[in-house]
Simulated scan of single mutants.
Amino acid sequence: MVVGLLFLCRGLSSLLGVLGGSRGTGQSVPVGQWPGWWAALIQAVCGALVLVGLFTRPAALIASGSMAYACFTVHQPDGLLPIRNGGELAAGAAPHGPGGAAGRVAHSVGTGLGIRGATS
């Protein structure tokens, strides 16, 4: 749920210019601009789906695909390592997607509380 909320907030910041806006500028990404607006739309929709628990696997797959695209085509030209090119979010989320991380968090919390069979 938390990772879904983070994806939703990230998408809304770029789509609507809220929460600091796109890249901290306070502005939204122009409608239809490739790839920024479409990535923000995917982040917002998929984040909302994961947050409420609907279609989590397809939403996580699509979100992780968009993060992989961002990692290799948007961030990597600015530097090889994510810490140098501003792609920490894309690099961290691409292999797992929001659903994968949410499952691991649920498993960790369930195991910590002693719930048997707490899996993703």
Results as ranks from 00 to 15, higher is better:
3 V>K: 04
5 L>E: 03
5 L>S: 11
8 L>N: 01
8 L>Y: 02
11 G>M: 02
12 L>F: 13
12 L>V: 11
17 G>D: 03
19 L>N: 13
20 G>Q: 09
20 G>D: 08
24 G>D: 03
25 T>H: 07
26 G>L: 06
27 Q>C: 04
27 Q>H: 07
27 Q>E: 14
29 V>S: 01
33 Q>T: 12
33 Q>S: 07
34 W>Y: 14
35 P>C: 07
36 G>M: 09
37 W>E: 02
41 L>V: 10
42 I>R: 01
44 A>V: 04
45 V>Q: 05
46 C>A: 06
47 G>L: 02
50 V>Y: 01
52 V>P: 01
52 V>Q: 06
52 V>K: 07
54 L>H: 07
56 T>G: 11
58 P>H: 02
59 A>N: 06
59 A>Q: 04
59 A>T: 05
60 A>K: 03
64 S>A: 15
65 G>Y: 03
66 S>A: 12
66 S>H: 00
67 M>I: 08
67 M>E: 06
71 C>N: 05
72 F>T: 06
73 T>P: 00
73 T>C: 07
74 V>W: 05
77 P>E: 12
77 P>C: 09
79 G>H: 11
82 P>S: 06
84 R>N: 12
84 R>H: 13
86 G>W: 09
87 G>E: 05
87 G>A: 07
89 L>I: 10
91 A>I: 07
92 G>D: 02
93 A>T: 13
95 P>G: 09
95 P>F: 10
96 H>C: 14
98 P>W: 04
101 A>P: 00
105 V>F: 14
108 S>D: 06
109 V>L: 13
110 G>Q: 09
113 L>G: 08
115 I>E: 11
115 I>N: 05
116 R>A: 14
